[in-house]
Simulated scan of single mutants.
Amino acid sequence: MSKPMTKTELVAAIAEAMGADKKTANAALEAISAVVTKEVAAGGAVTLPGIGKVSCKERPERQVRNPATGATMTKPADKQVKVTIAKALKDSVNA
């Protein structure tokens, strides 16, 4: 398995694909990140065409168990970020 692409490598690849400089590509990546973060934090969802859908799911209060002690405790309600991968991406990986 290969190492994951770093942010620097991703910015360089985006710059090359856009035909722009790295500063512009970095600004585009930061803008996308900010928009997705803002929308998902507000409880919405964002679809990234060809990649997938990022959404926020609320989880209710529930009982959990400490694996070390076996004690049961109540975990408060929280939110979970969920990423659903697009079918097109799955198909291209498995092709």
Results as ranks from 00 to 15, higher is better:
T24F: 11
A28D: 00
A71W: 06
S33I: 00
N66V: 03
L48S: 08
M73V: 01
P76M: 06
A20D: 13
P60C: 02
N26Y: 11
N66H: 05
L48K: 04
G19C: 10
A15G: 12
S55C: 07
E39F: 03
E39T: 15
A15V: 10
K57F: 06
I51R: 03
E16S: 14
P49F: 00
V46N: 01
E30V: 00
E16A: 15
A15M: 12
T69N: 01
A71H: 05
A41N: 14
P76C: 09
T74W: 07
T47Q: 15
V54T: 00
S33L: 00
T24M: 13
D21Y: 01
S55W: 08
V64W: 04
K75I: 02
C56D: 05
G50W: 08
M73F: 13
G52C: 07
A13T: 13
I14N: 04
A34L: 08
A28G: 07
L29M: 12
T69L: 06
G44D: 10
A42W: 05
M18A: 13
N66C: 01
A42Q: 10
P49L: 04
A31S: 12
G43K: 13
K53A: 09
N26Q: 14
A41S: 15
A45Y: 05
K57P: 05
V46M: 02
G52F: 08
P60K: 12
